[in-house]
């Protein structure tokens, strides 16, 4: 464990908590892409199938929290507060993300076993899972500031993981090319948002995307 990965995981946890609190407190999932949340639930389910393999208390605890929180979020969006779910703007064709991720995982992986292919699929899936949400923000042209804080924390987590991978390569001579390439793609997808967040939201303005 290193500081980059620890802060990254905490940023990830913060994002998930911000989202859950936003939906629960406002009793509304307006502006939130249910499709992205379903993709995240798929990511954690397919990645943490190795949950029974005990690595550490921290590792097991975080995996359980991420799985539970992602399903709770999907439940809140599609069941409890489904009246506030914005179908009209959450229209990204997720099949164009799931299928290519799965095919790519079958073609490019470290080991052609069920667990390894599913882990690889979860890595590819996670790198594009935020697209429906970013697409929805661009369609609505704006996002509530709490939603942009969620996106900033979520985007920062994988950016910090890139620093973690650099650190691990330089100190442990260890690297995982699949995770690194997908992590860079994932972080790049947030760049446009990061720019808007830093230039606008941090100045107290609303996040307005050029329509």
């Amino acid at each position: 464990m290193n500081i980059f990965r620890l802060v990254g995981d905490l940023s990830h946890l913060l994002a998930i908590i911000i989202l859950l609190l936003k939906i629960w407190k406002t009793r509304s999932c307006a502006g939130i892409s249910g499709k992205s949340q379903i993709l995240f639930a798929i990511v954690y389910t397919s990645r943490y199938l190795d949950l029974p393999n005990f690595v550490s208390m921290y590792n097991t605890l975080m995996k359980i929290v991420f799985i539970a929180a992602s399903y709770a979020t999907v439940y809140l969006i599609y069941m409890k507060f489904k009246a506030t779910y914005d179908h009209n703007h959450d229209t990204f064709r997720v099949e164009f993300l799931v299928l290519p991720s799965f095919v790519l995982a079958l073609l490019i992986n470290h080991d052609f076993t069920v667990l390894e292919v599913l882990w690889t699929f979860s890595i590819y899936m996670e790198s594009v899972a935020i697209l429906p949400q970013l697409f929805m923000v661009s369609k609505t042209g704006e996002a509530e500031s709490i939603t942009s804080h969620y996106l900033f924390a979520l985007g920062s987590y994988r950016a910090l993981y890139i620093l973690n991978w650099i650190y691990r390569y330089t100190t442990e001579d260890h690297y995982d090319l699949i995770a690194i390439v997908a992590g860079i793609v994932q972080t790049v997808l947030y760049c446009d948002f990061f720019y808007l967040y830093i230039t606008k939201v941090l100045k107290g303005k609303k996040l307005q995307l050029p329509a």
Partner: peptide
């Protein structure tokens, strides 16, 4: 060492 998958990462 080539991609020995980092099992300890989330």
């Amino acid at each position: 060492s080539f991609a020995v998958k980092s099992k300890d990462e989330l």
